[in-house]
């Protein structure tokens, strides 16, 4: 399935924002930026304070009872029929594609299916549901885009990120070799198989740098901390940030709402 085959909802007045635990602890600015980008489209964003983690770390490690325990709490966060927007293809994929399986045959099955059906990745939501239009307020810059495997394959967001970036007049987006190849993060994979992971992320950093970018934007924080962390560790000239933060910084000057 690709992005154009998907049926996106009409643009809503209100949405839920599921921030994800990595954003919460390490990249809250990206979360705020995502929320501002949605508000910029005239949408009221609700951030349920009881959200914790989608449960994916335990799920992919094989501990499904523990994953279900954590996921059950998230099922109660979204009582209204509003879309749920997630600034991560990976956590979005967990809600959208794995919750139905995780709760299959349980009392929560229907709720899990309902939530799965209205979960969207942030950039696809901005592009396809909101029809976001951006005017670039930033100085000229060259960036690479890293679309996570889960955003690309599981959430099938297609080229949503690239199309949003393409609206920014002063931003040159370079294409790196083997752009579709995994960066080697894979959650616990990075620590269970550190050498394979390192070989993968090293190649990823090299291909982005070789493409002529000194910074990159990522749709997922896992990849971001992997790629940027490796570049920093090895002294390679590559900085990274979440795509939401990057977009917000480029367009916020036009809005001047004064709060950030």
């Amino acid at each position: 399935m690709n992005a154009t085959d998907k049926r996106y909802p009409e643009k809503p007045d209100q949405v839920y924002f599921f921030g994800t635990c990595l954003v919460d602890l390490f990249y809250p600015r990206a979360g705020v930026a995502g929320i501002r980008l949605l508000e910029r489209e005239g949408i009221t964003v609700h951030f349920p304070q009881n959200q914790t983690c989608c449960g994916q770390p335990a799920y992919t490690s094989g501990y499904h009872d523990q994953a279900r325990q954590v996921a059950t709490v998230q099922l109660d966060l979204f009582p209204e029929p509003w879309p749920i927007v997630v600034p991560s293809g990976s956590c979005g994929g967990m809600l959208r594609h794995h919750y139905p399986a995780l709760f299959s045959g349980t009392a929560h099955e229907e709720k899990a299916r309902d939530i799965a059906g209205r979960t969207w990745e942030l950039t696809e939501f901005l592009l396809h549901v909101c029809g976001a239009r951006y005017t670039d307020q930033g100085p000229p810059v060259t960036v690479a885009l890293h679309t996570s495997c889960s955003a690309r394959r599981e959430m099938a967001i297609g080229d949503a990120g690239r199309r949003l970036l393409a609206q920014l007049g002063n931003v040159t987006v370079v294409e790196q070799d083997r752009e579709e190849e995994c960066c080697g993060f894979g959650g616990t994979f990075a620590v269970r198989h550190p050498e394979i992971s390192a070989a993968m992320v090293s190649d990823k950093v090299d291909s982005i740098v070789a493409a002529g970018a000194e910074q990159f934007a990522s749709t997922d924080c896992g990849c971001l901390m992997n790629i940027a962390g490796h570049a920093e560790k090895t002294g390679k000239p590559l900085a990274g940030e979440h795509l939401a933060g990057f977009l917000w910084d480029r367009v916020r000057g036009a809005d001047r709402d004064g709060t950030s």
Partner: peptide, 18 residues
């Protein structure tokens, strides 16, 4: 951290900011 720097904890979480 054998191959990467550690991600840095933010001063305030998204929960706190919101």
């Amino acid at each position: 951290t054998r191959y990467r720097t550690a991600p840095r904890l933010a001063p305030r979480s998204l929960h706190a900011l919101m």
